[in-house]
Amino acid sequence: MSGIMYERIPEADHAVYNRHAAARRAAFHIASTELRPQRTLAIIDGRTIAREHLSRGLLSNGLGLRMATYSSVEDIETYEAEAFSVILLCVGDSRFMDNSIVLEIGALVRRFPKVPVIVQAELCGLQQILGVLQQGARGYLPGNAGISVCVEAISMALAGGVFVAAENLNDIQRIFGARRHQSKRLEMFTRREHQVIDVLRQGKANKTIAYALGLAPNTVKVHMRNILRKVRATNRAEAIYKINALFEEIS
């Protein structure tokens, strides 16, 4: 690899370090390497000092991976997917302004479909996090995350999970919950019933609804009966109250 490689070397036990012990350890190292090839974490960060500091910090905290550092996504595009076990992409805030980085993350995920990609960025708005996760990234770290949090995120991604910082998790769960709720709501009514409901929520009478939608008054009455039944309401006022609660948007 053209990137800079780092690997933690255990300190020797000088009390037992002799020629025979060294030979035994060397033989064990060779055997274990053949059984389980060393996995590699690719760190992509345009800031030289930051990426070197992060790689050494992860090594010293016993992550158990080799480190390969790169300055840009382009630097790793020529490698085979087997070259990396996980990719950590560190992004500056300015990259999110024109959405280019989100598209780049999507391309990176498609280029290495079996390699989990984790993104670290100072900007932690919900839209940025959701955009990154929707592109297939397996984690989103805030820029001030400590080494232990990075280790946790990388370990979770390697285990097949998705990591999101605790301070963002509740908001994300709320948004996904609302989307499921919205999907259920859309399935509950027909397209025409949705049109009737849009006018009904304005407090309009059946004749006004019929005129606005170009329907016969009797047709509107049929739709109204179906809507009342679906929301389990006995009259228009109760129906409007329940529908408004059902259609309530996230603030």
Results as ranks from 00 to 15, higher is better:
70 Y>Q: 02
71 S>Q: 06
71 S>H: 08
72 S>Q: 06
72 S>K: 08
73 V>C: 06
73 V>D: 03
73 V>H: 02
74 E>M: 09
74 E>H: 13
75 D>L: 10
75 D>A: 15
76 I>T: 04
76 I>E: 02
77 E>Q: 10
77 E>M: 15
78 T>H: 13
78 T>K: 14
78 T>F: 12
79 Y>Q: 13
79 Y>M: 14
80 E>W: 05
81 A>W: 04
81 A>T: 14
84 F>R: 03
85 S>D: 15
85 S>N: 13
86 V>H: 07
86 V>M: 12
86 V>P: 01
86 V>S: 04
88 L>I: 04
88 L>Y: 06
88 L>D: 02
91 V>E: 02
91 V>Q: 04
92 G>P: 01
92 G>N: 01
93 D>A: 10
93 D>V: 05
93 D>S: 07
93 D>G: 02
94 S>W: 02
94 S>Q: 06
95 R>L: 08
95 R>V: 00
96 F>P: 03
96 F>T: 01
97 M>C: 03
97 M>P: 00
97 M>Y: 12
97 M>S: 09
97 M>E: 14
99 N>C: 03
101 I>M: 07
101 I>K: 02
102 V>M: 12
103 L>G: 11
104 E>D: 11
104 E>L: 02
104 E>C: 00
105 I>V: 15
105 I>A: 15
106 G>V: 00
107 A>Q: 13
107 A>R: 15
108 L>W: 04
108 L>S: 01
109 V>E: 02
110 R>Q: 15
111 R>Y: 03
111 R>S: 04
112 F>E: 04
113 P>R: 09
113 P>L: 13
114 K>R: 15
114 K>H: 15
114 K>N: 15
115 V>I: 15
116 P>N: 08
116 P>R: 10
117 V>D: 07
117 V>P: 01
117 V>H: 05
117 V>A: 13
118 I>C: 14
119 V>Q: 11
119 V>T: 08
119 V>S: 05
119 V>E: 07
120 Q>K: 15
120 Q>C: 09
120 Q>T: 01
121 A>I: 00
121 A>K: 13
122 E>R: 13
123 L>R: 15
124 C>D: 08
126 L>I: 13
126 L>P: 02
126 L>Q: 10
127 Q>L: 07
128 Q>L: 03
128 Q>M: 05
129 I>Y: 10
130 L>F: 14
130 L>M: 15
130 L>G: 12
130 L>W: 14
131 G>C: 03
131 G>F: 04
131 G>E: 05
